[in-house]
Simulated assay, not measured.
Amino acid sequence: MSIEPSAAVPVLLLSVRDEYVGRRWSPPGHHWPAQPSAVGGLDLVAGGTWLAVEPGGTGAGDSADSGPVAACLLNGFGTSAPEAARLSRGALPLLAVRGGRIDTLDFDRYDPFHLVVVRPDGARVLSWGGGTGGRLVELDLPTGLSVVLNDGPEGLSENRTASERIRALMAARADHFRARFEAAPRPLPLLDNPDTERAWGAWLPIVTGDGLPLDAPAALVQRRDFGDGRIWGSSSISLLALGPAGVRYDFAPAPVGPGGNGWRRVEP
């Protein structure tokens, strides 16, 4: 996430979806008849999404406005909800972009999560660690570059993974790519430029993996066998730009093919 209030395009969001590779999904589209203007990828298992965009949405919370809004979901660590009462976290991005009050939900029914709500004037992260008597933590992201992991913003959530291996992988990923994005010229994606490569400039080779093997400790686009018979990996990459003129949304299945083949611009 890059926030530069004085820039022509003040907010840029990179989202890499990591999931068990056998989990079925559909690419971004208008998948929800009850919310026809929302666009996002569809999780075919639970019916929700990991990232939703409203081109003229109202956003969530008291600072809502009529500009574009996006919401990105990350699974968190902590106490799982009771199975009999559990609700899908995939509904949360859709609720956020239509202006729903996330802070009024019965959080005991959700597994831990981090929800990043993005508008042209900035971004806020809502974090839930689960458990009876737990609390929702809200944080406004600062100007500059921020990294949100499954361990929360900058890996500093109150509820973090107990696995040293997973923590080390997340830290390696964040350290490598923070340095790479800080060193690269910040793009200014033009809303009327259909070409993904020209719109995102020096960011695009970094976003697509920066040449790292899929099993490298710092891999952004990853594929890992944790030994339980299932393969964990990156299934898609999303690039969003939000500004006064609207929102730009570029999407590709991961890993991206040679020469950047596979990118398409999503028309909200």
Rank of each mutant, 00 (worst) to 15 (best):
W50V: 02
S15I: 03
D111V: 10
D18V: 05
G57A: 06
G122A: 02
A81Q: 01
F113W: 00
L42A: 11
T58Q: 13
G56I: 08
G100D: 11
G22R: 05
T79E: 14
D108N: 14
R89S: 11
A71F: 01
D121F: 09
Y110L: 06
T58P: 00
G99L: 05
H30Y: 08
L92K: 02
R24D: 10
S37D: 14
L126H: 11
G78D: 04
A84P: 06
A91M: 13
L126P: 00
G131T: 07
L51N: 06
L126S: 04
N75Y: 08
G40N: 09
V39N: 08
V39S: 15
R23F: 06
H114C: 00
A96E: 02
D106A: 14
Y110T: 01
V69R: 04
R135M: 10
P27F: 10
W32K: 07
R119V: 08
A60G: 13
T104F: 02
P55F: 04
L92C: 07
S63W: 15
V11W: 05
T79V: 15
A85M: 12
D18A: 08
G29S: 12
L73A: 11
G133Q: 08
D65P: 00
L95I: 12
G29T: 07
R109M: 03
R89A: 13
F107G: 12
T104S: 15
D43F: 12
Q35V: 14
A46G: 15
E138L: 12
G131K: 03
R89H: 02
L139K: 10
D108A: 15
L51R: 07
G56W: 13
L42R: 13
R124K: 12
H31Q: 06
L13S: 02
D106I: 11
S66P: 05
A91I: 12
G134Y: 03
S127K: 07
D106E: 15
L12P: 05
G90M: 10
F107N: 07
S63C: 09
V137M: 12
Q35P: 01
